[in-house]
Protein backbone atom coordinates (compact mmCIF):
# COMPACT_ATOMS: atom_id res chain seq x y z
CA UNK A 1 0.00 0.00 0.00
CA UNK A 2 1.50 3.35 -1.01
CA UNK A 3 2.07 5.95 1.69
CA UNK A 4 0.89 9.54 1.45
CA UNK A 5 1.48 12.75 3.34
CA UNK A 6 -0.91 15.23 1.75
CA UNK A 7 -4.25 14.76 0.08
CA UNK A 8 -6.06 17.38 -1.99
CA UNK A 9 -9.59 16.43 -2.93
CA UNK A 10 -13.25 17.25 -2.96
CA UNK A 11 -15.01 17.10 0.37
CA UNK A 12 -18.65 16.24 0.92
CA UNK A 13 -20.60 16.33 4.18
CA UNK A 14 -22.75 13.59 5.66
CA UNK A 15 -23.46 15.19 9.04
CA UNK A 16 -25.12 12.20 10.71
CA UNK A 17 -24.10 10.48 13.92
CA UNK A 18 -23.62 6.72 14.35
CA UNK A 19 -23.06 5.72 10.74
CA UNK A 20 -22.29 2.12 11.63
CA UNK A 21 -20.46 -0.34 9.42
CA UNK A 22 -23.73 -2.18 8.65
CA UNK A 23 -24.84 1.03 6.95
CA UNK A 24 -21.46 1.60 5.29
CA UNK A 25 -21.82 -1.83 3.67
CA UNK A 26 -24.86 -4.04 4.26
CA UNK A 27 -23.93 -7.64 5.07
CA UNK A 28 -25.49 -9.10 1.94
CA UNK A 29 -22.68 -7.69 -0.24
CA UNK A 30 -19.81 -9.04 1.80
CA UNK A 31 -19.41 -12.36 0.00
CA UNK A 32 -18.29 -10.45 -3.11
CA UNK A 33 -14.60 -10.90 -3.99
CA UNK A 34 -12.74 -7.61 -3.50
CA UNK A 35 -11.51 -7.63 -7.09
CA UNK A 36 -15.06 -6.89 -8.23
CA UNK A 37 -14.94 -3.54 -6.42
CA UNK A 38 -16.93 -2.47 -3.37
CA UNK A 39 -17.59 1.16 -4.37
CA UNK A 40 -21.21 0.62 -5.37
CA UNK A 41 -21.97 -1.00 -2.02
CA UNK A 42 -20.96 2.09 -0.02
CA UNK A 43 -23.96 3.26 2.05
CA UNK A 44 -26.01 1.24 -0.42
CA UNK A 45 -29.36 1.35 1.35
CA UNK A 46 -29.08 4.99 2.41
CA UNK A 47 -28.26 6.17 -1.10
CA UNK A 48 -31.13 4.39 -2.78
CA UNK A 49 -34.89 4.39 -2.55
CA UNK A 50 -37.03 1.28 -2.15
CA UNK A 51 -36.80 0.64 -5.91
CA UNK A 52 -32.99 0.69 -5.87
CA UNK A 53 -32.83 4.05 -7.67
CA UNK A 54 -30.21 6.54 -6.48
CA UNK A 55 -31.66 9.30 -4.32
CA UNK A 56 -30.50 12.46 -6.13
CA UNK A 57 -30.60 14.51 -2.95
CA UNK A 58 -28.30 12.25 -0.93
CA UNK A 59 -24.98 14.10 -0.41
CA UNK A 60 -22.73 11.36 -1.80
CA UNK A 61 -24.83 11.05 -4.94
CA UNK A 62 -24.41 14.74 -5.72
CA UNK A 63 -20.63 14.41 -5.93
CA UNK A 64 -19.25 11.14 -7.30
CA UNK A 65 -15.71 12.60 -7.33
CA UNK A 66 -15.55 13.23 -3.58
CA UNK A 67 -12.55 11.79 -1.75
CA UNK A 68 -13.02 13.41 1.69
CA UNK A 69 -16.06 12.70 3.85
CA UNK A 70 -17.08 14.92 6.76
CA UNK A 71 -19.31 12.87 9.06
CA UNK A 72 -20.89 12.88 12.52
CA UNK A 73 -20.00 11.22 15.82
CA UNK A 74 -19.15 7.54 16.22
CA UNK A 75 -18.48 6.94 12.53
CA UNK A 76 -17.87 3.27 11.72
CA UNK A 77 -19.20 1.85 14.98
CA UNK A 78 -20.34 -1.74 15.24
CA UNK A 79 -19.23 -4.70 13.16
CA UNK A 80 -15.50 -5.25 12.56
CA UNK A 81 -16.08 -5.73 8.82
CA UNK A 82 -13.11 -4.26 6.96
CA UNK A 83 -15.38 -4.29 3.91
CA UNK A 84 -16.69 -0.94 5.20
CA UNK A 85 -13.24 0.51 4.54
CA UNK A 86 -13.02 -1.23 1.14
CA UNK A 87 -16.35 0.34 0.17
CA UNK A 88 -15.07 3.83 1.08
CA UNK A 89 -11.75 3.30 -0.72
CA UNK A 90 -13.30 1.79 -3.83
CA UNK A 91 -15.74 4.71 -3.97
CA UNK A 92 -12.70 7.02 -4.05
CA UNK A 93 -12.44 8.19 -0.43
CA UNK A 94 -9.04 8.72 1.21
CA UNK A 95 -10.04 10.70 4.32
CA UNK A 96 -12.98 10.62 6.74
CA UNK A 97 -13.25 13.56 9.14
CA UNK A 98 -15.45 13.01 12.21
CA UNK A 99 -15.62 13.85 15.94
CA UNK A 100 -15.15 10.16 16.81
CA UNK A 101 -14.74 6.75 15.20
CA UNK A 102 -15.44 3.16 16.11
CA UNK A 103 -12.16 1.71 17.41
CA UNK A 104 -12.05 -1.28 15.05
CA UNK A 105 -13.09 0.79 12.03
CA UNK A 106 -10.32 3.32 12.67
CA UNK A 107 -7.67 0.59 12.87
CA UNK A 108 -9.01 -1.03 9.70
CA UNK A 109 -8.95 2.34 7.93
CA UNK A 110 -5.31 2.99 8.78
CA UNK A 111 -4.39 -0.53 7.67
CA UNK A 112 -5.70 0.38 4.22
CA UNK A 113 -4.32 3.90 3.90
CA UNK A 114 -7.62 5.64 4.72
CA UNK A 115 -7.19 8.44 7.27
CA UNK A 116 -9.68 8.64 10.16
CA UNK A 117 -9.13 12.30 11.03
CA UNK A 118 -10.60 13.11 14.41
CA UNK A 119 -11.75 16.67 15.03
CA UNK A 120 -13.73 18.32 17.83
CA UNK A 121 -17.53 18.31 17.45
CA UNK A 122 -17.33 22.08 16.91
CA UNK A 123 -14.81 21.74 14.07
CA UNK A 124 -16.88 18.97 12.49
CA UNK A 125 -19.94 21.23 12.63
CA UNK A 126 -17.96 24.15 11.14
CA UNK A 127 -16.67 21.99 8.28
CA UNK A 128 -20.15 20.61 7.61
CA UNK A 129 -21.40 24.21 7.53
CA UNK A 130 -18.73 25.11 4.96
CA UNK A 131 -20.00 22.23 2.82
CA UNK A 132 -23.69 22.94 3.36
CA UNK A 133 -24.00 24.69 0.00
CA UNK A 134 -22.11 21.96 -1.83
CA UNK A 135 -18.82 20.09 -2.12
CA UNK A 136 -15.55 22.06 -1.84
CA UNK A 137 -11.87 21.38 -2.21
CA UNK A 138 -9.92 20.54 0.93
CA UNK A 139 -6.27 19.84 1.65
CA UNK A 140 -5.42 17.36 4.38
CA UNK A 141 -1.80 17.28 5.59
CA UNK A 142 -0.64 14.40 7.80
CA UNK A 143 2.64 15.90 8.98
CA UNK A 144 1.05 19.05 10.42
CA UNK A 145 -2.29 17.35 11.14
CA UNK A 146 -4.13 20.17 9.41
CA UNK A 147 -7.15 20.56 7.19
CA UNK A 148 -7.36 23.55 4.87
CA UNK A 149 -10.63 24.59 3.23
CA UNK A 150 -10.57 28.03 1.60
CA UNK A 151 -9.47 30.42 4.32
CA UNK A 152 -10.34 27.95 7.09
CA UNK A 153 -7.48 26.03 8.67
CA UNK A 154 -8.22 23.52 11.42
CA UNK A 155 -6.34 20.77 13.24
CA UNK A 156 -7.19 17.10 13.44
CA UNK A 157 -5.98 14.30 15.65
CA UNK A 158 -4.53 10.92 14.71
CA UNK A 159 -2.35 8.62 16.82
CA UNK A 160 1.40 9.02 16.23
CA UNK A 161 1.82 5.39 15.23
CA UNK A 162 -1.04 5.59 12.77
CA UNK A 163 0.25 8.79 11.20
CA UNK A 164 3.71 7.26 10.71
CA UNK A 165 2.15 4.19 9.17
CA UNK A 166 -0.03 6.18 6.76
CA UNK A 167 2.91 8.31 5.65
CA UNK A 168 5.15 5.30 5.07
CA UNK A 169 2.50 2.96 3.72
CA UNK A 170 3.90 0.25 5.93
CA UNK A 171 2.78 -3.34 5.75
CA UNK A 172 2.65 -4.53 9.34
CA UNK A 173 3.55 -8.12 8.46
CA UNK A 174 6.91 -7.02 7.05
CA UNK A 175 7.58 -4.91 10.14
CA UNK A 176 6.65 -7.75 12.44
CA UNK A 177 8.78 -10.34 10.69
CA UNK A 178 11.80 -8.19 11.57
CA UNK A 179 11.06 -9.26 15.15
CA UNK A 180 10.78 -12.99 14.34
CA UNK A 181 13.49 -13.99 16.79
CA UNK A 182 11.87 -12.15 19.70
CA UNK A 183 8.49 -13.62 18.83
CA UNK A 184 9.93 -17.14 18.76
CA UNK A 185 11.65 -16.59 22.11
CA UNK A 186 8.43 -15.23 23.62
CA UNK A 187 6.51 -18.25 22.35
CA UNK A 188 9.02 -20.68 23.86
CA UNK A 189 9.00 -18.88 27.20
CA UNK A 190 5.21 -18.90 27.29
CA UNK A 191 5.07 -22.54 26.30
CA UNK A 192 7.22 -23.51 29.27
CA UNK A 193 5.79 -21.02 31.79
CA UNK A 194 2.13 -21.43 30.78
CA UNK A 195 1.64 -24.82 29.13
CA UNK A 196 -2.06 -24.51 29.97
CA UNK A 197 -2.32 -21.78 27.34
CA UNK A 198 -2.04 -24.42 24.61
CA UNK A 199 -5.17 -26.40 23.71
CA UNK A 200 -5.18 -29.83 25.33
CA UNK A 201 -6.82 -31.50 22.37
CA UNK A 202 -4.57 -30.44 19.51
CA UNK A 203 -6.36 -28.44 16.87
CA UNK A 204 -4.30 -28.86 13.74
CA UNK A 205 -4.10 -32.64 14.00
CA UNK A 206 -7.84 -32.78 13.58
CA UNK A 207 -7.68 -31.05 10.22
CA UNK A 208 -9.42 -32.91 7.48
Amino acid sequence: MPGWSEHVGTAVALPRDNIDTDQLIPARFMSTPRAQGYGNFLLHDLRRDAHDALDETFPLNTCPDASILVAGRNFGSGSSREAAVYALLDAGFRVVIAPSFGDIFAANAVNNGLLPAQVTPEVAADLAELLASGPREMTVTLESREILCGATRVSFDVKDGWRTKLINGWDDIDLTLDHAARIAAFRDDRRSAAPWAWPRRPGAQYAR
Partner: peptide, 15 residues
Protein backbone atom coordinates in the same frame (compact mmCIF):
# COMPACT_ATOMS: atom_id res chain seq x y z
CA UNK B 1 -12.44 -8.12 17.44
CA UNK B 2 -10.11 -7.28 14.58
CA UNK B 3 -10.40 -6.41 10.88
CA UNK B 4 -9.28 -8.45 7.88
CA UNK B 5 -5.79 -6.93 7.61
CA UNK B 6 -5.25 -7.73 11.28
CA UNK B 7 -6.61 -11.25 10.79
CA UNK B 8 -4.05 -11.77 8.02
CA UNK B 9 -1.36 -10.44 10.35
CA UNK B 10 -2.32 -12.85 13.14
CA UNK B 11 -2.46 -15.74 10.69
CA UNK B 12 1.03 -14.92 9.41
CA UNK B 13 2.72 -14.08 12.73
CA UNK B 14 0.47 -15.18 15.66
CA UNK B 15 0.90 -11.63 16.97
Amino acid sequence: GIGATEVAHVLATQT
